[in-house]
Design a protein around this nucleic acid. Structure first.
Lengths: 205, 205
DNA sequence: TCCTTTGTTGAGTGATTGCTCAAAAAATAC
DNA sequence: GTATTTTTTGAGCAATCACTCAACAAAGGA
């Protein structure tokens, strides 16, 4: 699998450079991050960037994938996997979002929520790329809530699509608040309030 | 007051041109709207734009003020003024946001929430300008909730700042969902869920 | 050794950005 | 009429945008 590579070896660590790009895109978004900002932060020349990552759009998409695999963005997936009940999963997601989105060791909020809003029409495909991820996340939420209905955790009468969209909107609101400067202390009670909408369990038969 | 103006009169309607600018900024945001986009939509030449509105930043700020005075953005202020109870006011704000943010006769979501995220560092003052408006809105919400506590509509134990931030975040989530393509039918039940966090009234003495 | 392959370097591409200027045009003041 | 004031026009400014290319450098294969 790891065939010996011919030609001159790369002088920089590709993953390390990609991590720098994630940082910049997370902080400034797609449009406001220029290629020269990127080459400066990654400490490589433009031609090396293009040789290693294709064009700016490809680099951004790869940065999004790297972001999704990194620790601060995986909390939702982990909560859905580990928590036994849907209520437990969504409560944990909101509580951990309040922490993760305000962690001062990295840019505020969620890269996928923040970084490709208001882009130039010529980059509409980038906007669509992130919108599709966001909508896919709402679909995952809906599936988990449907499962909870089947398991008897939620009554049949619950509109799972609406509830899933509500949680998606709550996360987006938390992300925006964090980007506007809210701290973890500010957002913790907001997350608790958001959890409060959870429907009453089915009546015992 | 209307002193006779000397010099060559303007060949375009300033308010009409400003309305076109509002439309464009609302749709694309500050960065992604170029001056040549603006001059084309307003049907004026660059020098006329600069003579009438100053620079791009001044035009944007004026567009934000015009937006805030126009019908689709005033629903919150009107609800706070007209509704007798705080609960009635916030319920109405969320319900009307679901409608206003998805009205197909204008761009989706809220201009003040959408249009200056991820801007270039050199335009950080524009980002701060909108952030201040958003934070001021949360302050207005807090004041209304404090009033409700004093009036006995809400118990003393309620964290009004957290509740105000929650409603701000809910509106931001609705705006983002609308920008991602959600319809009024999609957002109505989300608004109803969001209203559901309203705290129980104080116990009768 | 020489060839092939891959990467780096530094200069530079055309396009677009926000913005400006001199000259002409259209109004009022005298 | 002439002078003054303001706006429009069309051309064009420097800076930045994403991106590319020819020359050179450093590795493996034969």
């Amino acid at each position: 699998m790891t065939e010996s590579r011919r030609g001159r070896p790369r002088t920089f660590d590709r993953d390390e450079a990609l991590a720098k790009a994630v940082r910049l895109f997370w902080d400034r978004g797609y449009e406001a991050t220029s290629v020269s900002d990127l080459t400066e932060a990654m400490n490589i020349r433009p031609a090396s960037l293009y040789a290693a990552f294709g064009d700016k759009k490809s680099l951004f998409k790869e940065a999004v994938v790297a972001y999704q695999r990194a620790a601060p963005a995986t909390f939702a997936k982990i909560a859905l996997r580990e928590e036994r009940t849907a209520r437990g999963a969504f409560a944990r997601i909101l509580r951990e979002a309040a922490e993760a989105y305000t962690d001062p060791s990295h840019p505020a909020g969620c890269l996928i929520i923040r970084s490709a809003t208001n882009v130039n029409p010529r980059d509409a495909d980038i906007e669509a790329f992130l919108r599709d991820i966001r909508n896919a996340n709402v679909a995952v939420f809906t599936a988990r809530l449907d499962e909870a209905v089947r398991a008897g955790e939620l009554p049949d009468s619950v509109d799972t699509r609406a509830l899933a969209r509500y949680f998606g909107a709550a996360l987006q609101g938390l992300s925006q608040q964090a980007a506007d400067g809210a701290t973890a202390a500010d957002l913790r009670p907001v997350a608790e309030l958001a959890i409060g909408v959870w429907p009453a369990p089915p009546e015992a038969p």
